[in-house]
Write a protein that binds this DNA or RNA. Structure first.
Lengths: 256, 256
DNA sequence: ATCATAGTCGTCTTCCTGACGATAAACACC
DNA sequence: GGTGTTTATCGTCAGGAAGACGACTATGAT
């Protein structure tokens, strides 16, 4: 046993992959890019890239995020003060099956990003090489019947598993943290927040009980003073995310 | 942007580090090994080692675990059926700060192992180069007053942070899962399980409410028929871990 | 016999949630 | 202007779960 012998260690390629989630039109969506080269040419994949020689893992993920979406993420582990419209970024898990990339040994550190609804993904320059796709469509064993696109093709590499893990992390984390606000614009209504929960969990929630719960949890929401009527109906009070990050007691996800 | 160019990628060393936790004498303890070579020579560190060229990350962690402790872990992600006395193993997080190893760029995939109380750690051959140390002692900013050992020296590399993350994962995970049984022998009493919670959380729990909670949660415990008096006092019923893995509603960790 | 120890069963109060009625404030349409 | 629709917000009530704690049981130690 000779740990850390600098002269003889097996070399690995290390990458970061991004599970970027948002809520669009009442559906949980993930950012995917089309692969331009083999393997899996033409298939959809999660955005990602190599970690640079002197770059931390979280920094690599944030850099890739800017390159793919223009979003400025703030990693909670970083010492940066709270930025303006940044998205939430956290490490998800690491995938290192020797067979996961047919060309060479690649260990990928997946990160999870929760972002508010964005106008449109910007690819590196190729126009429609990136898009938001509903996660149900990307993951469902039973894809929708052939419509116009090439939907049924699964994601490249082991990205379906990575995406599934990211979605499950998001679903469970909004239970006991205030992270659902990361899907919302800086100011939002209780109804908009409820629609985030409904989209991420895929359930319907009682508006009255939800309102009581979120407004009754100290530090979750702080009123910003204004109101809005952008959803139609009676004007709703606008809130910002409060300082609390952990919800106690947590939001309860309905059984079925 | 040229992702996955096989001819030009920065090479990294990839290792696994293990946070092996157990409960000994009513204290949460971690397995640490003494480093025999620089850097950090003579300091305590988490066990770990290089991932082999054709080895999955979880397999590397399981292999290191056997080498260090003789424990047979069963990764829930693996297709193995439930083994006998195996410990619980799961991936924790990945640490890749460019400065974390002064010699070269090392990315370490940390894993968390929860094991029942073991007789004694077996080192590779060097007798007292491995030991169980209370995590409070390893992590406390305020170490105990100098007793006989060389306690105040912190763990090597960034292992204090890795250990802290592992402990926090264990503390939160026994709230909503049945994982606390991984700290117990195959058959155990409600009181022994309660002492696990008390040691991991560092709190005192009401024996009556705890008993009501764990015996009232379907699938958490199944009686094995026997009783024991190894704790003194009235004989206690023996249980095994039931099939349930998620506790709903969760165990509640007291505030202070 | 008495005590100490640990386990097990109940009770009571309080808090939280789910179900759901009712009211309020906007807009669309006739 | 009236009416209906939509969404937001407040209230009420019943059931379940948890904390506090009393009471009883079954063993070993003295």
């Amino acid at each position: 046993m000779s740990p850390y012998d600098p002269s003889a260690f097996p070399p690995f390629a290390v990458t970061v992959d991004l599970v970027v989630l948002t809520v669009r039109r009442h559906a949980l969506c993930a950012l995917v890019v089309r692969r331009g080269e083999p393997p899996f040419q033409g298939r959809w994949a999660l955005p990602g890239g190599f970690v640079r020689p002197d770059e931390d893992l979280g920094a690599a993920a944030a850099r890739e995020l800017v390159e793919e979406t223009g979003l400025c993420a703030h990693d909670p582990g970083s010492p940066l003060p709270e930025a303006g419209n940044g998205a939430h970024l956290e490490q998800l898990a690491t995938y290192g099956d020797p067979e996961r990339d047919p060309r060479m040994r690649v260990v990928s550190v997946a990160h999870l990003v929760l972002a508010p609804d964005l106008p449109a993904p910007r690819a590196g320059g190729d126009a429609n090489s990136a898009r938001w796709a509903p996660v149900d469509e990307l993951l469902d064993q039973e894809g929708g019947a052939g419509r116009e696109g090439e939907q049924p093709a699964p994601l490249a590499f082991d990205h379906a598993r990575i995406l599934a893990d990211g979605v499950e992390r998001a679903r469970s984390k909004i239970e006991y943290s205030s992270l659902a606000t990361a899907f919302c614009p800086p100011e939002f209504t209780v109804g908009e927040l409820r629609r985030v929960y409904e989209a991420v969990w895929g359930v319907a929630l009682d508006p009255r009980n939800f309102h009581r719960k979120v407004t009754g949890t100290p530090g979750f929401l702080v009123p910003s003073g204004g109101t809005t009527t952008r959803q139609g109906g009676r004007p709703a009070q606008l809130f910002r995310a409060g300082g609390a990050t952990l919800l106690n007691p947590p939001m309860l996800r309905p059984e079925v």
